[in-house]
Amino acid sequence: MSKKHPNHHKYHLSGNEPQDSEALVEVQEERPVLLKHYIIGFISSLILTLVAYIITINHVADRNILFIILALLALGQFLLQMFYFLHVGREFSPKFKLLMASFMSLVVIILVGGSLWIMFNLNGRVMPTQSQMVKYMNSQNSL
């Protein structure tokens, strides 16, 4: 049993609170969170939300271009909040939190992207349009 814990530097054991000895310990697996992070995160999210809202309401561009811009704004806000609010990437190594978040993003991209690709492809091929449906129904009647 060695006196020096291998991860000693990560922990900050202070002893200035009298009532509860359990409360003395500071958990530091991540770099400390500061007020400025929350302020930056909040203001930038606010701006991105408002920009997205305004360009949509005013239809400032072609619909397809707007879709892309809105998606990028959402993605930007997602990354900002992940970093400033959820502190992903601010841990000391090993960055397991970041690992899980990256893997989650990969799975979500595959799942959502793949599902939409498959389903819209099927919609185009399997789902009849209204006129096709009418034609089909007429052909059945004539039988």
């Binding site: 359990e22 409360a23 958990v27 939300t49 809105l70 909040q81 959820l86």
Partner: peptide, 30 residues
């Protein structure tokens, strides 16, 4: 008061709440 245990739980709750706002970004957009 704020003990080791309650601080841990506040952290979890805080993550949960931020996470719900992250999900809302996509509900708002999509």
């Amino acid at each position: 008061g704020i003990t080791r245990v309650s601080l841990k739980r506040i952290r979890m709750m805080s993550m949960f709440w931020h996470f719900l706002d992250v999900v809302w970004i996509f509900i708002f957009t999509i």
